[in-house]
């Protein structure tokens, strides 16, 4: 995952806040925000994850002219399922196990971020229900338009050999 340019936009923040059912005016109302301690509209704490929208290689977004593994005429449109590192993946393959954020400051509309991702640790564990579990960690540092580190994100993905049994 590499995000060269993630423009943080007011409309995107509003849609994101709606999607998590958060009516807090700090995420949309500039006039309200001016009178608060923060002093301006900011983004919710997990908003930075939507940098995926600006990752050209993000596997969990249909791409123009390429096959997509979701259903259409057939239950799946691809022979193999892509698996995303940080955000989950295809059937029985990759799931999101952990997510950690460190906030050096909170995002605001007008910020333009750059994400630099590096591989972290890898380890294996015998799962109780899902066979052998393979864990993979990725660390993404988000820098703003002034090259200042604003958020450090650590993501752990897990792959299973078979689908976990449903309970």
């Amino acid at each position: 995952m590499a995000v060269d340019r993630f423009p943080v936009e007011a409309g995107h923040i509003l849609m994101f806040a709606r999607s998590i059912g958060d009516a807090n005016p700090i995420y949309s109302d500039e006039e309200y925000a001016r009178k608060t301690e923060v002093g301006r509209v900011i983004a919710p704490p997990t908003f930075v994850q939507s940098s995926a929208q600006f990752d050209p290689d993000w596997p969990l977004r249909p791409k123009i002219g390429e096959p997509w593994f979701g259903s259409g005429k057939e239950p799946t449109g691809a022979r193999s399922n892509p698996t995303g590192g940080s955000g989950g993946g295809g059937a029985g393959a990759g799931l999101h196990a952990e997510q950690h954020f460190e906030y050096h400051r909170h995002l605001k509309p007008g910020d333009v971020l750059r994400g630099v991702t590096k591989d972290g640790r890898r380890w294996e564990k015998e799962g109780r229900r899902g066979g052998r579990l393979q864990f993979m960690e990725m660390i993404t540092e988000f820098y703003d338009q002034n090259d200042e580190l604003v958020i450090t994100a650590r993501s752990v993905g897990v792959r299973t050999e078979k689908l976990p049994e449903q309970s």
Binding site: A52, L60, G70, T76, G84, G88
Partner: peptide, 26 residues
């Protein structure tokens, strides 16, 4: 809504046909 805002369009979260017939979830 969350798929659209976050950019995580994994069909497991929105595509009932894929989630049940391909991935085997309820």
């Amino acid at each position: 809504q969350y798929s659209g805002a976050s950019g995580d369009y994994n069909p497991l979260h929105s595509d009932e046909v894929f989630a049940t017939k391909v991935a085997g979830y309820p």
